[in-house]
């Protein structure tokens, strides 16, 4: 995978049922963050698997002043990659149950 210096992990155990899940975005290069957030290393947030799109959350982070507009695509992609993996794991678990 291309190295964006951003990594999204689950911030809680996935029970496979809830549509809203806690995620944590790790920022390897703090220079990606804006102003007063430069000393930060991670952003925790909830993501609704049914109602939300990763790019929308990335845009909210930019609008909240966390990231530069130029990083919106990289942030969105990092969230999308993790969300795809969560969905894939859930689908696989469901088909195993059947």
């Amino acid at each position: 995978a291309e190295d964006t210096g951003l990594r999204v992990e689950l911030a809680e155990e996935d029970d496979g049922k809830k549509s809203s899940i806690a995620l944590k975005l790790w920022i390897e290069d703090p220079r990606k963050l804006k102003g007063k957030y430069r000393e930060s290393g991670a952003i925790e947030f909830t993501f609704d698997l049914e109602k939300e799109v990763p790019e929308g959350v990335a845009q909210e982070m930019v609008e909240s002043g966390l990231f530069q507009e130029s990083d919106v695509k990289a942030v969105g992609k990092s969230i999308r990659d993790r969300v795809s993996l969560i969905r894939w794991r859930r689908e696989r678990a469901m088909s195993a149950e059947e």
């Binding site: 991670a42 952003i43 925790e44 909830t46 959350v57 909210e60 982070m61």
Partner: peptide, 27 residues
């Protein structure tokens, strides 16, 4: 300044955590 900040955006909360000390030492 090792305190998490909470940023609110349209009903969502972003919890911004500081860099762990172990990582600060590496930099």
């Amino acid at each position: 300044s090792a305190i998490a900040q909470v940023v609110h955006s349209a009903g969502r909360r972003f919890i911004v955590s500081p860099v762990p000390e172990s990582r600060l030492r590496e930099q």
